[in-house]
Computed example of a mutant assay.
Amino acid sequence: MAVLVLAGEPRLWQMMLLTALGGTGQAFFSPAAEGMLMSSVRGAQASRAFAVFRMAMRGAVVGGAALGGAMVAAIRPGGVRSR
């Protein structure tokens, strides 16, 4: 998506397609990651492990957005690249 924006005028259909592909990937990743977590911990620890996992995932989303905003403010938007 960043390449589309930096390269010129992104079209709505291009952004919709990339968003759909990202959502599809997330739909496969989330259940698989949670399943792996649940298979690696036992009984009483499962609820705590799941809570820490979800907190880390949500924290990464919020922290990543905040870091991206700070980088755009410090460096011009074209200098910030996703990796």
Rank of each mutant, 00 (worst) to 15 (best):
V80R: 08
G63N: 03
A27P: 02
F28I: 12
G35I: 03
A65I: 15
V80T: 10
A60T: 13
G43C: 07
S30N: 15
M16T: 02
R58A: 10
G22F: 13
M71R: 10
A32T: 09
G23Q: 12
V3T: 14
G23A: 11
S82N: 10
Q14E: 14
G63C: 02
R54A: 11
Q26E: 07
T24P: 02
L4V: 14
E9H: 10
A65W: 13
V72L: 11
V3Y: 08
M15K: 04
G59M: 07
L67H: 05
F28M: 12
A7K: 07
G25M: 13
G8F: 08
S40H: 11
G68P: 00
R83A: 09
I75W: 15
G63V: 02
A70P: 09
R42G: 13
R76P: 04
M16I: 07
S40P: 00
V61T: 04
V41G: 03
P10R: 01
G63D: 11
E9S: 06
A2N: 05
V61C: 06
Q26R: 13
A33L: 06
V62S: 07
V61R: 09
T19P: 00
G25S: 03
G43H: 13
F50A: 06
A60N: 06
M15G: 00
G35P: 01
A56C: 07
R42K: 12
L17Y: 05
S30I: 11
A2G: 07
S39M: 01
G35Y: 02
A74N: 05
M36W: 12
M71G: 05
A74Q: 09
R42D: 14
S39I: 02
A49E: 01
L21H: 05
A32F: 03
T24L: 15
L18H: 06
R42M: 09
L17F: 08
R83E: 01
Q45F: 01
A32K: 02
L18A: 10
V5T: 13
T24F: 15
R54T: 13
Q14D: 05
S30A: 13
G69F: 12
G23N: 12
M38S: 08
P10C: 06
V3S: 09
G8L: 02
A56H: 05
P77R: 00
Q26D: 09
S47W: 09
F53Q: 02
M1H: 05
R42W: 03
M15H: 10
F53V: 00
V41I: 10
M38C: 04
A2D: 07
P77I: 03
A27V: 03
V41A: 00
R11E: 12
V61Q: 10
F50R: 13
E9P: 06
E9Q: 14
G69Y: 14
A7T: 04
Q14A: 04
